[in-house]
Measured scan of single mutants.
Amino acid sequence: MSGIALSRLAQERKAWRKDHPFGFVAVPTKNPDGTMNLMNWECAIPGKKGTPWEGGLFKLRMLFKDDYPSSPPKCKFEPPLFHPNVYPSGTVCLSILEEDKDWRPAITIKQILLGIQELLNEPNIQDPAQAEAYTIYCQNRVEYEKRVRAQAKKFAPS
């Protein structure tokens, strides 16, 4: 494992614990031996107030490669969400998460999670990743928002 990646992720964890947006979660997972795995984080993004996503808490896994922060983490909703920019596998399609697009090593975990929260309610229809959600979003916004509200209710924190 890269010392650069681990040191950056340790800084990220410290900064997150000191200050993070209300309702968001970002925690490194534990290895079988109980030690912390900084390369694999369990996160959760709350649906934004005043949107059909409100009330939901959407679980996301963030996986970092050894060359982080040169390369972005892979962000994957578990379980996958109904959304035009979420692949059926759950992987998020967002330009700041793509090395050859808008990724920059200075982007923080907090910025990534806030960017994904923004994307939930403002899909990028130029870059669809899920045919069904994309089609319904474009053709029947009322039905799309109904499905999103049902999903938010399903993923409401207990």
Rank of each mutant, 00 (worst) to 15 (best):
V25T: 07
Q11E: 11
L120A: 06
G23D: 01
R8I: 00
Q126R: 14
F77L: 06
Y137G: 03
A156H: 12
G23I: 03
E122I: 08
S158T: 13
F155Y: 12
F22E: 01
I45H: 00
H83D: 04
H20N: 00
N85T: 00
K48S: 03
E99H: 07
H20T: 03
F58Y: 13
A131N: 13
A106V: 12
S71C: 10
R8E: 14
P84C: 10
W53I: 03
M62E: 02
L81T: 04
W41S: 03
P157H: 10
R8N: 09
E98K: 14
P46S: 07
G90M: 10
E122K: 08
T51D: 03
P128W: 05
R61H: 10
L60S: 06
K48I: 07
W41V: 05
I136P: 01
K49V: 15
A156N: 04
W41Q: 05
P80W: 13
A44D: 07
I136N: 07
G34A: 07
I107R: 06
D19N: 07
T51V: 02
C138Q: 11
V86L: 04
M62P: 04
K59A: 09
L97I: 15
T35P: 05
P84D: 07
E99C: 13
A131F: 03
M36W: 00
A5T: 09
C93I: 00
G34Y: 05
N37M: 11
A15I: 10
P123W: 02
D127G: 09
V92F: 04
R141M: 15
N124S: 06
S158V: 11
E143R: 06
D66G: 11
K101Q: 09
L57Y: 07
C138H: 08
Q126S: 13
T51K: 06
I107H: 11
Y134E: 06
P32N: 13
R141E: 03
K154I: 08
H20Q: 00
P157R: 08
P72V: 05
P128F: 01
L38M: 06
D67G: 14
G90P: 06
C75F: 15
L97F: 07
F58P: 06
G50I: 05
L81S: 03
Q111K: 15
R104N: 02
N40D: 14
P32H: 12
L97D: 08
A133G: 07
C75I: 15
W16N: 01
K153S: 10
K110M: 06
T91A: 15
L9T: 03
W103I: 03
E78R: 14
F64Y: 10
L113P: 05
P123C: 04
K30Y: 07
T35K: 01
Y137L: 07
S70T: 12
Y144G: 04
S71L: 06
P73D: 00
D127H: 03
S95V: 03
K110Y: 05
K146N: 11
A133E: 01
Y144Q: 03
Q126I: 12
G115L: 01
S7W: 08
G23H: 06
R17L: 02
K146W: 02
N121C: 10
D67R: 08
I112Y: 00
Q139V: 03
P32S: 14
E145H: 02
R61V: 10
G55W: 09
E145C: 08
V148E: 03
P123E: 00
L38E: 07
P32D: 14
L81N: 00
L94T: 03
R17I: 01
V27H: 12
L119G: 02
L38H: 01
T91Y: 10
D127F: 04
R141C: 11
K18H: 08
N85Y: 00
I107Y: 06
E118H: 12
R147T: 14
G34W: 07
P84W: 04
N140D: 14
E118M: 10
Y87S: 01
V142D: 14
N40K: 11
G55Y: 14
M39L: 10
G115P: 04
D127Q: 00
P79K: 14
R147Y: 08
L38G: 03
F22G: 08
R147E: 10
G34L: 07
E99Q: 14
E143Y: 10
I45E: 03
Y144N: 03
P88F: 09
R104D: 06
I96W: 04
E118C: 10
K30W: 03
K74F: 15
L97N: 01
I96Y: 05
R147Q: 12
D127R: 03
K30S: 11
I109H: 04
L114N: 12
K14Y: 06
I136K: 08
K14D: 04
P84V: 15
A15E: 12
A15W: 08
G47A: 03
E145L: 14
Q11T: 14
T29E: 13
V142W: 10
Q117L: 09
A44M: 14
S89A: 13
F24W: 05
P105S: 11
E54M: 12
K65S: 13
S95Y: 06
E42S: 11
L119C: 05
P123D: 01
L63P: 01
C75G: 11
G34F: 04
